[in-house]
Design a binder for these strands. Structure first.
Length: 514
RNA sequence: GUCCCCAUCGUCUAGCGGUUAGGACACCGCCCUUUCAAGGCGGAGAUCACGGGUUCGAAUCCCGUUGGGGAUGCCA
């Protein structure tokens, strides 16, 4: 009989969702979906000092943003709740009482200071085992009863069975792993303040939530034998374990804040698409076939398995993530693009008929940014125009946050922010005023359709007529209209800008030269 | 110190006894081109950490060494 697949992602809300946590969540999710099982979200908030509800909400938001869904969790409930560890203390107490009755735990009256002293002494003496010396393990029962009734501060420790033999388990990623019992410490499962510790509660929860597979970070590999001992004391079957190797920073050290952005939220803000992050993270330690790098979450769900998970730690390569993101932008299509771009438009207050002139750093020079509602309304009524921008930026933008700068010239009315270097190089040259004049002549025809093909048709012969290189002519027009020698394709840009503004800008640029 | 884990191009990886060691990112050329990109084509880049075995044959199996990571908390 194989029991139904039930997996969980159990972050502790002491910060927002970390890249490493996100990958763990993705693998849990993919495994559950692959096997038609359940994916449970459990919040490990037993440390009231560092846990906040805001962090919990942020983690939930990030997971959702990534496109993950779960079957049970704090905000959606389920048959195995509550899903906040802080609300499960009754379960932990009950389990502890059970362990007290069957003699697998004992009270320890050693103070933290004593323990520290012993530990330091053991380390100084180069002892092979620097764990607890078990001095409280065999205290006479009457003494124990008296000290407890006297109210003496004490913890509860797991009584490791000394004749147990090595603790062995088959890790789905690392294979058979074994720990000598002599190394196992009689670790604390209940603190002197009455709160249970991680290695205890995690077992209780996984048992009572009927978790079949524990998929988590490699940093828990050495905790696993401890937990197996707890399962055994409880008389409960241990789940299967799958440990995932760590994600490292570029320096080969464990990924942390000092490596820069490490939260999912930070990548979201930078303009990464959830599909791209998910794809990249999925590939960081797992491979579909060794060849395919871009694949959908459906493909992941259908193919994920532990047999193709790598055991070595992986360096997080933001360059490759960025490339992946650009691939997703190229493939997403105009409609999804506009939806994804919207928040960035709202941030600067761009609208089709706006006049927000920004300088090179993105600071407002003149004009009035639109409100969020106005941007919203504008995108709804001019959806086609916004979607027409997509092909211009799709091949250029690697991240969404770059799109505003790329298209700012479309939102500044008749004015243009001129990049000084571009003006010097492409505009302030002898004869350019004539180029612009001729250009205006060609565009003066009111009957001409203002579309890129017609515009190109109208201007294509200009270089030959003026006996100039195409580059000289078109770069001049580009700077006149866009303010910069680097811009999206010229004729498409003119089309989007419109007849009136294009002509106004070229005239303004010519006047600048005269 | 002790225990556990890991080791293929700069990076992510494929490989699971016989391959010219494959792919992707990044990098370098060339082509395309009115800018920037994108795209196409090509290139360089890995004595498979090192040393011993086993085998007709080892990146693949075994042992050791070195290096890295993790654990060793009244954190999770």
């Amino acid at each position: 009989m194989t029991r139904p697949v039930r997996v969980r992602f159990a972050p502790s809300p002491t910060g927002n969702l970390h890249i490493g946590g996100a990958r763990t969540a993705i693998y849990n999710w993919a495994f559950a979906r692959r096997h038609g099982g359940s994916f449970v979200l459990r919040i490990e908030d037993t440390d009231p000092e560092r846990s906040t509800t805001e962090n919990t909400a942020q983690i939930v938001r990030s997971l959702r943003w990534l496109g993950l869904d779960w079957d049970e969790g704090p905000e959606i409930g389920g048959n195995y709740g509550p899903y906040l560890q802080s609300q499960r203390f009754a379960t932990y107490n009950e389990a502890l009482e059970r362990l007290k009755r069957n003699g697998s735990v004992y009270p320890c009256f050693c103070t933290p200071d004593e323990l520290n002293a012993k530990r330091e002494a053991a380390q100084a003496a180069n002892l092979s085992n620097t764990g607890y010396d078990r001095s409280c393990r065999d205290l006479p029962a009457d003494e124990v009863a008296k000290r407890i009734s006297d109210g003496e501060s004490h913890t509860w420790r797991l009584k490791v069975p000394l004749d147990h033999g090595p603790v062995t388990f088959d890790d789905l990623v690392f294979g058979t792993t074994s720990f000598p019992i002599e190394q196992m410490d009689d670790f604390i499962i209940l603190r002197s303040d009455g709160s249970p510790t991680y290695n205890f509660v995690v077992c209780i929860d996984d048992v009572s939530m009927d978790i079949s597979h524990v998929i988590r970070g490699d940093d828990h590999l050495s905790n696993t034998p401890k937990q197996i001992l707890v399962y055994e004391a409880l008389g409960a079957p241990a789940p299967h374990f799958a440990h995932l190797s760590m994600i490292l920073g570029p320096d080969g050290k464990r990924l942390s804040k000092r490596h820069g952005a490490t939260s999912v939220e930070a990548y979201q803000q930078q303009g990464f698409l959830p599909e791209a992050l998910l794809n990249y993270l999925a590939l960081l330690g797992w491979s579909l076939d060794g060849e395919t790098t871009v694949f959908s979450s459906d493909t992941l769900k259908e193919n994920f398995g532990f047999d193709r998970i790598s055991r070595n730690p992986a360096v997080f390569d933001e360059t490759k993530l960025t490339w992946m993101n650009s691939a997703y932008i190229k493939a997403m299509g105009a409609s999804f693009f506009v939806d994804a771009w919207l928040p960035y438009l709202q941030e600067v207050g761009f609208t089709r008929n706006g006049d927000t002139l920004l300088d090179a750093s993105g600071a407002l020079l003149s004009g009035t940014p639109a409100t969020v509602e106005e941007v919203d309304a504008d995108v709804i009524t001019n959806r086609c125009w916004y979607e027409a921008i997509y092909p211009l930026v799709a091949e250029r933008a690697k991240k969404l946050d770059e799109v505003n700068a790329m298209t700012a010239f479309l939102f500044s009315g008749d004015k243009v922010f001129y990049d000084e270097k571009s003006v010097e190089k492409c505009l302030r040259k002898p004869g350019i005023d004539k180029v612009l004049t001729r250009c205006l002549d060609e565009l003066a025809n009111e009957d001409m359709l203002w579309q890129h093909a017609e515009l190109e048709e109208a201007l294509r012969s200009l270089p030959e007529q003026l006996d100039l290189k195409p580059k000289v002519v078109f770069q001049a027009v580009r700077v006149a209209v866009c303010g910069n020698m680097v811009s999206p394709p010229l004729f498409e840009s003119l089309e989007l800008l419109g007849r009136k503004r294009t002509i106004a800008r070229i005239k303004a640029a010519r006047n600048l030269l005269l």
